[in-house]
Simulated assay, not measured.
Amino acid sequence: MTCDAIVIGGGVIGLTSAIVLAEGGRRVAVWSRDPAGRTTSAVAGGLWWPYRIEPEERVAAWSVETLRAFLELAARPEETGVRLVEGTHTGLGVEELGPWAAEVPGLRPARPDELPEGFSAGLRARVPLVDMPTYLGYLRRRLEAAGGTVEERAAASPAEAGRAAPLVVNSTGLGARELVPDTGVHPVQGQLVVVENPGVEKWLVAADGAASDTLYVLPQPYGLVLGGTARENAWGLEPDPATADAIVARCARVHPGVANARVLAHRVGLRPARAQVRLETGQLPDGARLVHNYGHGGAGVTVSWGCAHQAARLSA
């Protein structure tokens, strides 16, 4: 065997898991069915914030560990794509958040003048906002610097990878539904619109964890990301024009300037949701160790480093 470990899946979870293993001294190959630019991670808005992910206690620890990693990466935003940006999450009080809230620097109740019209409460925070295309490129370069490789290759099963390496990490997200198979993982479709930024500098989120239509405005270097949707068990990847119009209209009520902003892109991604993240170990028929690391819902970026380190501990 030429590899110590094979990670199946080339999105943010797979690449981060591979980096932790490679920087720990293992020879690692990533098998990715799609190039990074076509993974669900590439479509993500990129805001660090636990959203649609369970179980709460483990998510808190994973989120805090990832936050600390992003705080370091934010010192080099042009290289990593990670910036610290101030913004407001409406409709929330600190008491409604998990234990991770105590670790967020500067988290506080929003003042009335910081809330958009129609909202009576919210939280203000300065948190990582990740430019995903830049960040995915950074992750790949970091993996390659540690001796890892990325191969565009679809695995028929974890056992196939287990015949090539003594350790297999399954980070296939929604693909685990067929690969494992695990019918417990299902899509939560998210649609967004990217427009030319009319001058918005702070992020804004108004997203109920159970709502199918959400509102978020995220200023990224490549444009202003407007969202969004969270539609359970919707598999379509084609943007719906009526949904896009509704997204822009919702965001324009908060930032009127976006109503006439030039549209740069329409995007749809499928969040890999599950009742709980599957982060556990097992054994393949040929004796290879199998570590599952998937089912992160709408918070893959938010928990990526914490889950990667936990996956590495399980592989020891």
Rank of each mutant, 00 (worst) to 15 (best):
M1A: 15
M1S: 14
T2L: 12
T2K: 14
T2V: 09
A18I: 00
I19K: 02
E23T: 15
G24T: 08
V28T: 00
V28K: 00
S32M: 10
S32E: 12
R33V: 08
P35N: 01
A36D: 08
G37Y: 12
G37K: 07
R38V: 03
T40H: 14
S41P: 13
V43Y: 03
A44H: 04
G46H: 06
L47C: 10
W49I: 10
W49A: 03
P50N: 08
P55I: 09
V59E: 04
S63I: 09
V64Q: 06
E65R: 15
R68K: 13
L71E: 14
E72Y: 04
L73R: 04
A75N: 09
A75G: 07
R83M: 11
V85A: 13
V85D: 13
T88K: 01
L92I: 07
G98S: 12
G98L: 12
A101D: 12
A101K: 08
V104K: 08
G106W: 01
L107S: 05
P109M: 04
D113V: 11
E114P: 08
E114V: 11
E117P: 12
G118D: 09
F119R: 15
V127C: 10
P128S: 12
P128H: 01
V130W: 03
D131F: 05
M132L: 14
P133F: 08
Y135M: 06
Y135L: 05
Y135E: 07
L136R: 07
Y138M: 02
G147F: 03
G147Y: 02
T149N: 02
V150A: 04
R153E: 04
R153A: 08
A154P: 11
P158D: 01
E160D: 09
G162H: 00
R163A: 15
P166K: 11
L167G: 03
N170F: 07
S171I: 04
G173L: 03
L174K: 08
G175P: 04
V180A: 13
V180D: 07
T183C: 10
G184I: 13
H186V: 11
H186L: 11
H186D: 05
H186A: 13
P187M: 06
Q191M: 03
V193M: 12
V195E: 00
P198F: 00
G199T: 12
E201G: 07
W203T: 03
V205W: 08
A207C: 15
S212W: 14
D213P: 02
V217K: 01
Q220F: 02
P221C: 12
A230N: 15
R231Y: 09
N233A: 15
W235N: 07
G236K: 05
E238P: 04
D240K: 08
A242N: 05
A244I: 01
R250K: 11
C251L: 06
A261R: 01
A265E: 14
H266E: 08
R271W: 00
R271V: 05
P272V: 06
R274H: 04
Q276C: 15
V277C: 09
E280M: 11
Q283W: 10
L284R: 00
P285Y: 00
D286K: 13
D286E: 15
D286H: 06
V291R: 02
H296C: 14
V301P: 05
W305M: 11
R313W: 05
A316T: 15
